[in-house]
Design a protein around this nucleic acid. Structure first.
Lengths: 343, 343
DNA sequence: ATTGGCAGTCAACGCAGGTGAGTGCTAAGC
DNA sequence: GCTTAGCACTCACCTGCGTTGACTGCCAAT
């Protein structure tokens, strides 16, 4: 097996390669780091690492670069997730001007994360499947038109406008509103949809058509927003790191815009531990993203389950720094949302 | 001055260059188009065009490429803004599944425009400065917390949550709501802010603190959303056309993410005619975007004044097709918003 | 005004030789 | 058994050079 020093060698290979983008050779290792052994010894270690497929040579007689497996080993065992620098902490603090609008908070968060990591940052909206109904409001706009506003305990607010055949009656509308909230308040969205299905039955027959219209519109509204949403920032960073991709970054950018692939990827990563999870290189092959790494963390609750956020970038990225940033921002966002549960 | 045939030559140079990305020479012109004259004659015309700085040679003894001025001439006098193809019309129709949510409509529109043009598409949210108050709603969430929802006649819906010191009283809240809507309904946002400033005075002194809290929060809410918003799609297309840029596209992508530059550019273009407006190459130099072209059109009203939408891409783009697409989508969106003014 | 002919220009391409970083192996030393 | 020095070998990368071919620009003839 790979010995202790061999792993140290792997660590510096990853670090140096990430810093310089150049394949790193045995000589430059002994020059830049004090291993106390000669280049030849390092070479023996490197031969070991190569046998284990942790590093590879782009071509004969050139330095070595980490493989996917090498990065994975680095992330799992070698990376020191060092705390953020003072400047970075300051950036988070500067960002603190808490807004009351979820859209705004997430937009700021994703920008912040992108700036901290110099990568593409992604923040998933709170999953509706894990949300509960906080409040439903019906606002009459005209005699035959009203707006339904739908608020979850995770801060999502969705509005929708619907036309009703009958004339709207303010007191009756108030009654519907009150019953809706008493019946639906605090329950999960799936149940809410079920409950709405038979909701009209409790009203007098003459009123049922109107109530039914409203209920089915609400069902649609909840269902339509079932699809999860993602905000992102820093796509320009992908272009900056274009040289780190063997082919074109075009398909990667397309996947990012498409969102659906990324949401599936996020979903797949949700299983694991509470902390930062990495998915590296070929591990993303099934999504057609075999040449990128994704670091994510849950946020929003102590078990990190409301939704995920993270960064996406080339294999050759600063894992230590980026994992620290993802962790810090996730914690920060959790705290922000937790302190004020209405958001 | 440049004669009639010289302009025809310019037209085919632009067309061929856009199609092939290769500098076009006199010989290939006579081969591909039936001018009925020899290559030498074409060369004479090209010399004329070059004198007028409508075309230029990347290096001696190579074909010619249109200059910014050449593209401008093409757009102003030579481009036939041909109607969309059947497939394109179909794409618009397929997109027709009208949603009731402005966010959704604009998100679809920008995607559509990006697909039609294969460029970066931009859609500006309806300008708040041109919007009027349609409705204001106050929704109690708990005893000391309420949500204010703010709806404009252009379909924007903004919500915000605020804490109030006093206990909320439902009937009084209803009174505030009623007065707010009677005072503010239908007036412009700037006036609305002024009106809100003295709004509390009309209430009994004991109630004024609460009303004042709400009014100042509303002022903030309107002011905060004053900043205009932009949605975009198809940034991947910029990467696809990367070879059309002399330097890196990184600064362009940054400007796109930044939005503020683009919004200024949109503002600058707003002046002109009703139809599609182009800003080409160096005409955007003041925004640091001297190597791109932007095509925009107003939408939302017969004088196209609610906001703008358009596309952004390299100088070397298919102006005929893209101008047609921008025009068609703007008209379509205007119709969609006009048919249902509440959106 | 148009045309054919012809010399001149210059990017692009392919090829050959030199350079150097870096490896793999082997034999000797601790 | 681990470490080290030495040495031959490989191969990407650079540079210079001659060739090629697509164009233009000009001029004299129509």
């Amino acid at each position: 097996m790979v010995s202790g020093r061999s792993l140290d060698v792997l660590r510096v290979i990853v670090q140096d390669y990430v810093a310089s983008r150049e394949p790193v050779g045995s000589k430059s290792i002994v020059e830049r780091h004090s291993f106390g052994v000669s280049a030849a010894t390092i070479r023996n270690d490197m031969a070991l690492l190569e046998e284990e497929e942790l590093i590879a040579a782009p071509h004969t007689s050139s330095g070595r670069v980490p493989t996917d497996k090498g990065y994975r080993m680095f992330v799992d065992h070698l990376a020191d997730v060092r705390p953020l620098t003072a400047a970075q902490r300051q950036a988070i603090d500067a960002f603190l001007g808490a807004s009351l609008d979820l859209d705004d908070v997430l937009a700021r968060t994703v920008r912040l994360l992108s700036q901290l990591t110099h990568q593409v940052a992604l923040v998933q909206y709170p999953l509706l499947s894990k949300s509960r109904v906080r409040h439903i409001e019906l606002v009459p706009l005209s005699t035959t038109r009203l707006m339904s506003v739908f608020i979850t305990d995770t801060g999502r607010v969705e509005q929708r406008i619907l036309d009703v055949a009958a004339e709207l009656d303010d007191t009756f509308l108030a009654e519907i509103r009150a019953r809706l909230n008493s019946v639906l308040g605090g329950i999960g969205l799936a149940e809410a949809m079920d409950t709405l299905d038979g909701f009209a039955d409790q009203f007098p027959a003459a009123r049922q058509p109107l109530v039914r219209t409203i209920a089915s519109s609400l069902i649609e509204q909840i269902g339509a927003n079932r699809q999860d949403k993602l905000v992102m920032a820093g796509t320009a960073n992908l272009v900056r790191t274009e040289e780190d991709f063997s082919g074109s970054i075009f398909p990667v950018l397309e996947a990012i815009e498409e969102q659906v692939t990324l949401l599936r990827l996020f979903g797949e990563m949700a299983a694991d531990q509470n902390g930062v999870v990495a998915s590296i290189g070929r591990e993303n092959a099934e999504f057609g993203l075999g040449e990128i790494s994704v670091l994510t963390s849950g946020y929003g609750a102590s078990d990190g389950s409301i939704a995920r956020l993270g960064v996406l970038g080339p294999l050759r990225m600063d894992y230590s720094n980026n994992m620290a940033a993802v962790r810090a921002v996730a914690r920060y966002l959790t705290k922000l949302l937790g302190d004020d549960p209405s958001n």
